[in-house]
């Protein structure tokens, strides 16, 4: 089951949710749920997803779901899984869907802790590159130069959009030597589905970082979600990779389409000056050099014999 055609007709994330038209996050959740199926428990933090799918008394999931707090996705998913294991229901997949703010920023501590303990959960970060639920504030994964409401435009160096580059969360997760870390883009369905299936099948901590364009927050047309997800990869801005037990593979050599093609579709980059665009171009080039070097250098993680318990 690796192609779009083989996916089941049945949805476990249903229509009637109130995501904005063209929401990339809603697409990520719907596709993921199609692969995970009925034997799943969902955790979602305070996020766009919670508000558009879980505003009482309505709920868009066909499977059980829990919400506790913003920063507790990894730990609550772990708590659910441990309890299920105790109840003899270890076959149930526990998935946490969190946005970039809940993952890269406020949720990082619990995420790192759960990864280090190799909790048996699937963590899906739908990265829309800002705090969209609260109204487009910059997060750790907001890209360089992007306008947000907390990086507004103005006449000073503080008024040129975000001054820092995107935090590389998957690389942080790789440092935990978990069984599976991968990135995916809505623009590449086959790659996305293959990684979802792999993640579903593995035991232990699995992390999937999916680029999920947000037409509202990116100041783009609602029908450009998929194009943007594709272009982010083809410009080299977003790298498709996977890291299995320490072995890093870059999944797609991009065409290196000029970054301007990607930026110009988005109002959040409209103000960028040539020097900022040049900085992004340099960043892409150097990032790829480093990613390639990393992929070469990172071999399998140390294989230490483990005295098995129970």
């Amino acid at each position: 089951m690796t192609t779009v055609k083989d996916l089941p007709q049945e949805d476990y994330f249903l229509s009637g949710h109130t995501a904005c038209p063209g929401c990339g996050g809603a697409m990520v959740v719907r596709e993921t749920m199609k692969v995970l199926g009925a034997n799943t428990v969902v955790y979602m933090p305070a996020s766009c997803l919670l508000i558009f799918s879980d505003m009482y008394p309505y709920n868009a999931f066909k499977v059980p779901s829990l919400q506790v707090l913003f920063e507790t996705s990894a730990i609550c998913a772990s708590g659910i899984k441990r309890a299920l294991k105790r109840q003899g229901k270890d076959d149930v997949t526990v998935v946490a869907f969190a946005g970039d703010g809940g993952t890269a920023d406020i949720g990082m501590q619990a995420l790192s802790g759960a990864a280090e303990r190799n909790e048996d959960i699937l963590y899906v970060c739908y990265d829309n590159e800002a705090y969209m639920n609260t109204g487009i504030q910059r997060s750790g994964t907001t890209p360089f130069g992007a306008w947000t409401t907390t990086t507004p435009l103005g006449g000073t160096s503080e008024g040129r959009g975000k001054n820092e580059f995107k935090k590389d969360v998957p690389r942080i997760l790789m440092a935990h030597d978990v069984p599976y870390v991968a990135t995916a883009s809505l623009g590449f369905p086959a790659d996305f589905l293959r990684k979802l299936e792999k993640a579903k099948a593995k035991k232990g901590f699995r992390y999937l970082h999916v680029l999920a364009p947000c037409p509202v927050g990116w100041r783009a047309e609602s029908d450009t979600t998929v194009d943007l997800a594709k272009l982010a990869v083809e410009t080299g801005i977003f790298t498709l990779m996977e890291c299995e037990d320490g072995v890093l593979t870059l999944n797609r050599e991009p065409r290196f389409t000029p970054v301007r093609e990607y930026l110009k579709l988005q109002g959040r980059f409209k103000h960028l000056k040539d020097d900022q665009i040049a900085a992004i171009e340099t960043w892409v080039k150097e990032k790829w050099e480093r990613d390639r070097a990393l992929a070469k250098a990172l071999g399998p993680k140390p294989k230490v014999p483990v005295a098995m318990t129970k």
Partner: peptide
Amino acid sequence: VESEHSAMSAVVAAEATG
């Protein structure tokens, strides 16, 4: 766990699982 915040959140989730 790695903090008390997570300790409480973990037992909340586990208790909610029954």
